[in-house]
Every structure is written in C-alpha cells, then in structure tokens.
Design a protein around this nucleic acid. Structure first.
Lengths: 339, 339
DNA sequence: CAGACATATGAGAACGTTACCATACGCTTT
DNA sequence: AAAGCGTATGGTAACGTTCTCATATGTCTG
C-alpha cells in the first residue's frame, strides 16, 4: 500500500539505516547517496508513519487540548491561540471537547494518554475532577490549565485577571460619577464568575458606594434572554441604575435589547459595559467591554508546558492573562446622562 | 514506565494473547481467566497504546478535520457538530486549522496521512488545491467536503443551499412590497458568496424588480466596519433602499450601527435581514437571518465518509445543508414603513 | 472408542520506525 | 607498519500491539 522506509531504501539501493540518516540529518551520509535517497523520497512520495515513529521513539509530537463547556466564543479563541503556538513548535494539537461534563473528562484524558500526547492543555472554567490529574501524573504527562487554576493539583496555570478586569470597569463608572451601578452576571459557582463579582464589589467599596442587592442581578445562564430579563427587573425599580456592568457580552446584548425596546439610549440614558469583548464591538452602538489579552495566551501556555516537560520537578508556576478595558465611549459621566 | 499488555499478562499469569482476547472480547476466554485479567487491568491502570495499535492494525480511529479560514463563528459550529458525530461513532477528531492559505494545506494533509487518519473532513469555502486531493487519493484516504463542493475531484460533499437561502430572504422582502432592496455582501470569489449573490439576483428577477447596481454593495470583507460603510453609501443616495439583505450577520451588524447612529429604526424605517444566524439573535433588535440547519451536518458528513470508506468506488454523492429563514419581524410591509 | 469439535491458551511473526552496534575503507599519526 | 580516527554504510533488536497458527484439553457423536 503506502511507501515505507524500506521501499525507498530499495529504490535508492541503500539500507533503511541510511534512509533514516537522511531523514533525520544525523550521522554520516555521502552527498551522492543523500541525493539518491532524497530523489527516491520525492518520486515515491514517501510520508513517514507517525504511529511507528511514536511507538519507537516515544515522542508523538502531539499535544492534547481538553475543552470543557464552550458557552461563549472565548474558548475557540484560546484554542486557536494554543493551536498556533503548538504548531510553531512543531507540535500537532488534538482537541477534544467535553459534551457531558462530569462524565466525559476521564475517558477523554485516557484517550489522550492512549494517543501518547506529550502534554495537555486544559481550557476550562468548569471543574476538572482530581482523578484526571491523578491519571496524568501516573502517566507522567504534564498539564497546564488555562482560565482556571489548579494549583492544589500541582498544575501550572494561566488564569485570567478577572478580578482586576471587573474592578477596573466598575471603578471607571464610579469615577464618572455613577452612584447606582448595576451588575448583571452569571450566578454559576465558578472561579471566573466569583472573581468578576468580587471585582465589582471591591470597586464599589473602594469608591465609597453602598452595595445594593437590588442592583445585583445574578442570572443562571449567559444567554441574552437572561440579560434582557435582568434589565427589565432593574429598570422597573423606582430608582433604576444609571450604569450597568455585565459579566459577559451576551448578557450585555440582552440588556441592550431591553433598553432599545424601551427607547433608552446608550450612553445618553444609561452607561453600559460588557465583558470578554467578543461581541460588543458589533453592537449598535458598539459598547465598552473588558477584553482579554489572548494574543500570546497560547504562547504562554506552551511555554509553561514545555518548561514543565523539561523540568518536571520545578516549582508550580502561575501566570495570568491580562485584561484591558476597551473604551468605546458607552460609559458617560453622570452629568451628561439624562435621568 | 507505563503498563503494557505484557505487564498485565504477567500480573494475571497469562499470555499477552489472552489479554488481547479479553480486551477485544473475541475468541475463547474462561470466565475465571477473564476475571483475573480484568482485575489486573483495573489495579494496574492499563491504558492501551494507540500508536502500537494503529501501527499493527492500520486502524488509527482518527478522523482529520481540516478547517480553512475561520472568519465567522460558523466553522466552529460545524466542527463541533462533526466532533460529536465522530465521537458517537468511536472516532477521535484531529483538527488542523490553516493559518496560511495556499501554503499550509499540503503540509497539513501530509500530516494527516502521517497520523494515519482514516478519513478527512474538509470544512472550507476557500479553495483547496487539487494536489491535496491527489495526495489523499494516493494514500487511499476518503474525504468529504463541507460547505463547498469538490465534485470535479470526485469528493463527496455537503454544500449549503445558499442560493435558496438568499432567494427566499429577498423574495420575502419583495412580497412585502419592497421595491428597492439593497444587497450588502462579500465580494470574494467563492462559491458561497456567488450563490448568495445569485440568489439575490434571481429573487429580484422573479419578483419583477429591476437589478440596480447602485443597490448592490459588494465589500471586500465580512467585518462590521464594511457593512457600516456600505450602509453609509446606500443611504446617502437620493433614493435609499427600504430593505437591506446582508450576506453575513457581521455585515448586518455594521448596517445596524449606521442606522442606529442616524436614528433610523429597524424595522420601522428600514427592513433588515442577515445571514448565518450566528449573531443576529443578539442584536437590538434581534434581526431576521438565514440560518443554516447545522444540527445533523456532522452526522451527514460522517455518514458520507463512512459510506465512502466502505465503498470506495461508489458514485460521488452530494448532499446539502438546508437553510431556514429565521423570522424575527425585522422585515415589515412597505406600507408600514416610514419613508 | 476413534474421530470430530468446541473450548481455552500460548508462541511468535509482523507493522514501520529508531538507534545502537558492527563493519569497512582510506587517511593521518607515531 | 600498526594503531587511531573520521567517514560511510548495513544489520538488527526493540517499541506494544494484533492476529494467525499451533497446541492441549475435555465432550459429543456414530
């Protein structure tokens, strides 16, 4: 069927050992012999068999990418970044997306080990069961967690500075004079969400603003519909907020839909900011959002991973993905706001 | 290092052959022996080595997924669908995304062959060089193209009914009495774009409307900014359109931004519809869009692929992904429109 | 009771590659 | 001239699986 090293060895009139030397550019090969072998490789269209290579050399050239929950488009961007970084280093990325949280993780990790991945990038804000890490440890495969940290498992991680991102956004609103700043965010008990919530609360506190539970809308899901309903509740109050900070762009979309339907304009009547900066650029008007500096996230993840491969016993490292406030002018000073 | 079949054979006091029989549930194994072997597998935590398995059996259990150009979020949804379908059939999906169109395709395909994929799903509206198909043919690896067809290469395909989708959307506008229906679409010379354009033109023709070049904005890219600029040009005319059909949701986003800035409301002043239905649901207001019925796209793609694997010489097959007009009420009858 | 047959297990040859060891030649060094 | 060394090449044993073939029981049939 397919052309093997033996095939081209025969064609070039040499041994497989020599073909191997040409392929790996190591050892001594006479220029003329090299030419003949390369010629044979060309004409026969030889493509090395990765399975055999991996089996023998214990280097698969594969890096696993475990993605859990893909609610917003964010993970795609991270995966994309990791993919490019991996390729730049000569690694192939194998992505597995969890469909059934809580049940699929372990089989997925087994699968990765089975494939012989040399490292694993775990992209998730959801909780990965400790058994997965135990498995990886036993197999001697290093992992790096992106988005959520697993320091307690001794895993290097790349977390998002969500606290700072939220803190910064809300502080800006407070600095512009807003007193009633609402929060619309996910109620999920995940580090990411908790940090955004805490950032919001800390910003209020540090700005000397009271924390009003009636202004904190924690909704069950990211879907726009929930943002819309939350806005409906917020603006039905006698004292509606003058600024709304959303823990996700999709929620902000819902808020914007409500405002638009009720002829409230952004930022004339209400100031609005979202999070993730994945959609907000496309809204009418484009709204402020906390963007994650993902360029380089893949690079960082792979750096951590390769570093860990080289030094398995080095101290656990944690780096972070910075956030940057994307200012599109939808947070206006209170004086200019029509109440 | 890791536990092999020989390891558990030793632990269970049997030969590797027996372990193999237990693993594959074929051949005769005494119940008691089976128990012992399974016990050993459990306690030692045996995980089969895919490389060795693939090398020997020529069945890697891998399916390749080549993705070119990932402009809108559409491909992610297709990939996701393919991923699930593949897993349901016991296949692992390996995705490679092209970064450098025109240069990366061939190496990527070689990589896939090298990995021993049993089939390849090509998701792309961009052009895949024939050399790739030649390579696949030589390696005896079946492929299926999603989104764009490659019938001339003898490749099964799953194309999107873009002509119908556009035709349907524009016909609806015409039926509601609109006479000046604008088009904002990508100028890229791709089958997808051509079909959307042709659908628009055919709908005008069949509705007895003249084709007005001034109402056809073919922009270089999908970015919202281009939609906005196109809208600016359209509405600067003495006779602006009363309805705008966009070849992509991102373009519709730009149009909406322009309209919003100029206090033109949808659908009160202008009717608007997008394409792909990937973002339009989130707009304020949510706008009509042509949605692709992707549920089942992965299933279909894998069905085609597996069918081809089983019968390599069967006649080339082409199926299609249907479109469905998502009505959110942003196309209003001309009578109700304020001009 | 001999042969046929179902049941149960082991031995071992591949799969295509890598990498170590052996061999062989010609040239310099002492 | 023997030893040492750089150059060039071939032979071959793994890597962990799969799978065929061989072997060894007991059990049933005519």
């Amino acid at each position: 069927m397919s052309v093997t090293m033996e095939g081209i060895a025969k064609a070039a009139g040499v041994s497989v050992a020599t073909v191997g030397r040409v392929l790996h550019q190591n050892g001594y090969v006479a220029p003329e012999t090299r030419r003949r072998v390369e010629q044979a490789i060309q004409t026969l269209g030889y493509i090395p068999n990765q399975s055999a290579r991996a089996l023998k050399s214990r280097r698969s050239g594969l890096i696993g990418n475990l993605v859990l929950q893909n609610l917003n488009g964010l993970y795609y961007r991270i995966t994309d970044s990791v993919l490019r970084a991996a390729r730049r280093r000569g690694y192939q990325l194998v992505t597995v997306q969890i469909t059934e949280p809580g049940a699929d993780e372990l089989p997925a990790v087994e699968n990765f080990i089975s494939l012989g991945v040399e490292g694993l990038v775990i992209t998730s804000d959801a909780f990965v069961p400790p058994a997965c890490f135990a498995l990886l440890r036993r197999a001697g495969i290093p992992a790096v967690a992106v988005e959520r940290g697993y320091l307690e498992q001794g895993v290097d991680s790349l977390t998002v500075e969500d606290f700072t991102g939220a803190y910064d956004a809300v502080t800006r609103m407070a600095k512009k004079g807003h007193q009633r700043i609402a929060l619309v965010a996910s109620a999920a008990d995940l580090p990411v969400e908790r940090q955004r919530l805490e950032g919001y609360r800390a910003a209020l506190r540090d700005s000397g603003l009271p924390e009003d539970p009636a202004l904190m809308e924690l909704v069950p899901e990211y879907a726009a519909e929930h943002g819309k309903q939350a806005a409906a509740r917020l603006f039905a109050r006698p004292n509606p907020p003058t600024a709304v900070f959303c823990g996700a762009d999709t929620l902000a979309a819902g808020v914007l839909q409500f405002l638009s339907e009720h002829h409230l304009r952004v930022p004339r009547d209400v100031s609005l900011a979202g999070y993730d900066d994945v959609l907000s650029r496309l809204f009418a008007p484009p709204i402020d959002s906390v963007s994650l500096v993902l360029s380089g996230a893949g690079e960082q993840a792979l750096e951590l991973l390769l570093h860990r491969m080289a030094a398995p016993t080095a101290p656990v490292e944690q780096r972070s993905i910075a956030t940057r406030y994307q200012d599109r002018g939808t947070v206006r000073t209170l004086q200019e706001t029509q109440t």
